[in-house]
Design a protein around this nucleic acid. Structure first.
Lengths: 209, 209
DNA sequence: ACAAGAAGTGAAGTACAATTCATTCCTTGA
DNA sequence: TCAAGGAATGAATTGTACTTCACTTCTTGT
């Protein structure tokens, strides 16, 4: 026998994997799934296309892992906020704020993860992601409703609406493309206000219900 | 000279065009842009693939025309509501209700028009569409704010949030797939309530602004 | 230093879908 | 009925990107 992976080698392999993930993430953040072809990812990572397949079964697999990792971090932060102290209203505001502020770092990334369709395989993974995001908001809503802060409402619908609202506001045509910080702050605030108002008791409940 | 288009022929050509548009619309409503390949559209319309190109420069052109036509109808209806009588709140509710109810007829159609990305060319057309949709809501918001029904807010952001909210709630993972009518009605109501609350004065404005 | 075997390469292979075009089929006016 | 020319066809072409694989380079243990 003349070859066994040394610790050093093991490390290098792991770092290659990371490099691929990072490269894919960068490209997706720039131009979405469409721009992140295997060849481009390989070039960005400074390796050959074939190499990618040594680490990932398929493009879909790679994409799913990038998405899952990125969202895992978001979910951690969101859950921390959701389970933290404060009124439901304040936590909802903070949660939306946290997500939107971070998303503005790479709008296309958020878009790709939340909305951009790809292979069915990826879509399935995305559905999970969206549900997880929705669940965070549902948890906050539930507490708010139980505690009397929010009026009774369809929590599934409201959670979906919240996710949709900030996604569209972030990546839609109105969304900024490298805007000034001030405008970003204003946008974040507007979105948060919108979402908080949306689940709160209106001042004069109309006849419509 | 031995051939000039007769009125009858002219009519047939026009009807072919319509058939193509209708077929494309059907396929998109079923499976989105992805499923609406030229070959499939041709088959659905009962003609050859080459024929499509006699009537449309490209697939993108065809898709844009389908989208434009479908949305034009929606915009007509929405504008009618927006310019009609009633409080801003009532009109906003009615507008969202009208769109969502009609969208539930073919969720994927709404999705494809509002969210599903395709060629850059199509994306550009979609941006127009989204802005037009947003403008309707902006108009209602403006009147509501001027009239004191709604609090001051970033109308662009709110309009985008509204469009995003109902889109996600309609086509997201939480959305129904051929659910019972009762549930659909409940969903529509939930979405409308959400959107109206979202732009209305909260009962106790929090310190956050 | 060497050979065994893994890591890495990138051009060729494949798959899929848009688009074209040589050919056939129809319609029209004489 | 006929021929001129447009309408329609669909197989072949093209373009694009994922995936594979025969080959090269590098690592490791002796």
């Amino acid at each position: 026998m003349a070859y066994r992976r040394s610790a050093l080698m093991e490390e290098r392999l792991a770092s290659n994997r990371e490099r691929i993930l990072a490269a894919a993430r960068r490209l997706i953040a720039e131009g979405g799934y469409r721009e992140a072809q295997i060849a481009a990812v390989a070039a960005e990572a400074g390796m050959s296309t074939g190499m990618i397949y040594r680490y990932f079964r398929s493009k879909a697999d790679l994409f799913i892992e990038v998405m899952t990792a990125a969202i895992a971090r978001e979910l951690e932060l969101l859950n921390e906020i959701a389970e933290g102290p404060g009124t439901a209203k304040a936590r909802l505001y903070a949660a939306v704020e946290s997500f939107t502020r971070r998303a503005l770092t790479g709008p296309n990334l958020a878009y790709a993860f939340i909305a951009e369709p790809a292979e069915p395989e990826v879509d399935i993974a995305r559905i999970r992601v969206r549900q997880q995001l929705g669940n965070v908001f549902k948890a906050i809503l539930k507490e708010g409703i139980t505690g009397g802060e929010f009026p009774a409402q369809d929590m599934d619908a409201s959670a979906a609406c919240i996710v949709g609202a900030y996604t569209e506001a972030l990546v839609g045509p109105i969304a900024p493309k490298g805007q000034r910080v001030k405008d970003q702050e204003r946008l974040i605030q507007s979105i948060c206000d919108f979402c908080v108002r949306a689940v709160s008791q209106p001042i004069n409940p109309s006849g419509k219900r």
